[in-house]
Design a protein around this nucleic acid. Structure first.
Lengths: 223, 223
DNA sequence: TTCAACAATCCCGTATACGAAACTGTGATA
DNA sequence: TATCACAGTTTCGTATACGGGATTGTTGAA
């Protein structure tokens, strides 16, 4: 094994290669349009073509690369417009989930959501970005689950996961954290009042503001 | 080539196997929970394991089958609840697209949408199911495009494609065709008035009615 | 000098082989 | 009789090999 994996050797080789390629693409190490040769990658990661191929197929399914028949695989062009489209779609889907969740969540789920919100106050005061990131994630995923629509929850989670790479440095600024929590509070108010439409509008605004906070970072990363 | 492909030999072998498996699963030939053995399928389709494996991976990505590491691939359990969830999600996403499209479509796009609606009248009168199916599809896809959000359009198209198998026999009844066209007309009215929220509600109702028309068929197919 | 045609090379799709891990069945022991 | 352990088989993940098609480079002619 003469590849460049410094991590543990557990798990599927194709998964490890997929993760490595995901990091390489989202970090900008492999710019958009780069041709990904299977043999080249196989040699680079010290594996054969088969797991590399598996990894590329998975990346193609998730949209990070584009594969043509007999034409190889290239890193997908993530233009600023496309990223903006992705964020808008996310915002709309989150709003959709918030509206449905408002009408369908059980008192227990509503209580758990409010607990999460309460817990996040401490993270904000302490400026603990990682802790808030976890609570933020739990907040949104709880809303997905509260739609009581498993398929919709999966879709929302999948698209959120696809944007995770760009969201990585979103909450680095303490003021953004505080505003994020405030916006969560306003969404919760709308939910408590049973006004799903209002919850949806506030969630949409929340997501779009978070996206805007990323604007400069995105521009300079994938410019 | 001693497999059971009566279709043309063009295209990728893995794609042909994927299509064959998709048909086999959605038609009920392969019930939920069926274990899909790679060697078995390879022999069945007269190919080697490699393209079968590719096909299974693609099916796993689209959700038709579930794959576990070292545990093989099984046909996904499509319970009636899950199918209902999928239809509801589709309805919500279509409504979302209708709302955005109302606010963003150009006069040219609006004209083309109305042309499609006009053309569909003839198909309804003639009872030409296939022709109406094409126009119906074009109607919805034009709305996706009119959101001017390429990513959202792709998502909408993907989820629509995933449900295409169940929608196959949706429009067999002439009265459903006529009602479908009437509902399109109401959606168009809301769009013409510039009322995106109304267009969204009418689109949601349209999709849910179409899903309800399929209820019995679904129940007896995947029961 | 430019364009077209042919040839060579490269790379992808597919086939086959091998090692490892998990499941199963049988036998022995408590 | 029930449970645990071991061996055998099955199947998945990975490696390697081969054929075909596409791209590219070179050469010749206009």
């Amino acid at each position: 094994m003469h590849g460049e994996f410094q991590k543990i050797d557990s798990g599927l080789l194709s998964d490890r290669i997929r993760n490595a390629l995901t990091d390489a693409i989202t970090s900008g190490e492999l710019p958009a349009g780069t041709a990904l040769d299977e043999q080249n990658l196989a040699q680079r990661y010290g594996a054969s073509r088969t797991p590399v191929r598996e990894a590329l197929r998975q990346l193609a399914a998730s949209g990070l690369v584009e594969a043509g028949p007999r034409r190889g695989v290239v890193v997908a062009r993530l233009t600023p417009e496309r990223i903006a489209d992705m964020f808008e779609t996310t915002a709309e889907i989150e709003a959709m989930c918030a509206r449905l969740a408002t009408y369908r969540m059980t008192p227990l789920e509503r209580g758990r959501l409010m607990d999460l919100h309460e817990d996040s106050a401490a993270a904000v005061e302490a400026g603990d970005v990682d802790a808030y990131d976890r609570l933020n994630r739990a907040f949104h995923e709880s809303l997905y689950a509260a739609t009581h629509n498993g398929f919709m929850a999966e879709q929302a989670l999948a698209i959120r996961e696809r944007l995770a790479a760009f969201r990585r440095t979103q909450l680095r600024h303490a003021d953004r954290i505080r505003r994020s929590r405030d916006e969560h509070g306003e969404i919760l108010s709308a939910i408590a009042e049973g006004d799903g439409e209002l919850a949806a509008r506030r969630m949409r605004a929340h997501m779009l503001r978070a996206a805007a906070a990323l604007g400069r970072y995105i521009a300079e990363t994938v410019g």
